[in-house]
Amino acid sequence: SSGGSSILDRAVIEHNLLSASKLYNNITFEELGALLEIPAAKAEKIASQMITEGRMNGFIDQIDGIVHFETR
């Protein structure tokens, strides 16, 4: 797709992000992006959206560029 990722790509990214949230206590956007094979800024945006929508527990430290995952 030309304008970003398809629905399937997005679903795969979100699935992998949720998997990462179970493996890590926290991770930088750079590391997360590398893990998900997407730019760091996109990793931040998707993580932020999932947390806001209540689909993933955690919070974002924008100063240090880190996602902190919280286990249920």
Rank of each mutant, 00 (worst) to 15 (best):
F69M: 03
I66E: 05
N57L: 11
G33W: 03
V67E: 00
S6H: 13
I7G: 11
S5K: 09
F59T: 07
V67C: 03
L32Y: 00
Y24A: 03
S5F: 05
K42G: 07
N26W: 15
G33I: 03
E31L: 11
E44S: 12
M50Q: 01
R55D: 02
G54I: 02
R55W: 05
N16V: 11
M50S: 01
L32N: 00
F69C: 03
E37N: 15
L18S: 04
G4I: 12
G4C: 11
G54C: 06
K42H: 15
K45Q: 15
I7P: 11
I46D: 01
A40W: 10
N26I: 10
L8R: 11
G33H: 02
Q49T: 07
T28D: 03
A41G: 09
I13M: 07
V12C: 13
G54D: 03
A43D: 00
D61C: 10
G65T: 03
R55K: 10
A41I: 09
A40L: 05
S21Y: 04
G65P: 04
S1G: 13
N25P: 08
I51Q: 03
S2K: 08
T28H: 03
N25M: 12
D9V: 06
I66Q: 06
A11L: 12
T28A: 04
L32C: 02
E31Y: 06
L17V: 06
R55N: 04
Y24Q: 03
T28Y: 03
S1A: 12
G3K: 09
K22D: 04
K22H: 07
I46Q: 01
R72Q: 10
V67Y: 02
R72V: 10
L18C: 08
L17I: 14
E70C: 15
K45S: 13
D61T: 07
Q62P: 14
K22R: 12
H68Q: 05
F29K: 02
A40Q: 06
R72M: 10
R72P: 12
T28W: 02
I66Y: 07
A43P: 00
E14V: 06
S5P: 12
E44A: 15
E70A: 10
E70I: 11
P39N: 07
G58F: 03
L8T: 11
K22P: 02
E53K: 05
E70K: 10
T52E: 14
G33V: 03
A20I: 15
I60M: 04
G65C: 05
G33M: 03
A20R: 03
F29H: 00
Q62N: 11
P39F: 04
G3H: 12
V67I: 15
G4P: 13
T71N: 13
L18V: 07
E53Q: 08
A11R: 07
G58I: 03
D61I: 08
E30S: 08
L17C: 03
V12Y: 09
K42V: 15
L17H: 01
M50N: 00
I63V: 13
I60F: 03
E44R: 13
E70L: 13
D61S: 10
I13R: 02
G4Q: 12
M50E: 01
G54P: 00
S48P: 00
T52R: 14
S48R: 14
K45V: 10
A43V: 12
H15V: 09
L35D: 00
A34E: 09
S5Y: 03
I60E: 00
F29Y: 04
L35E: 02
T28S: 12
V67F: 05
I27F: 05
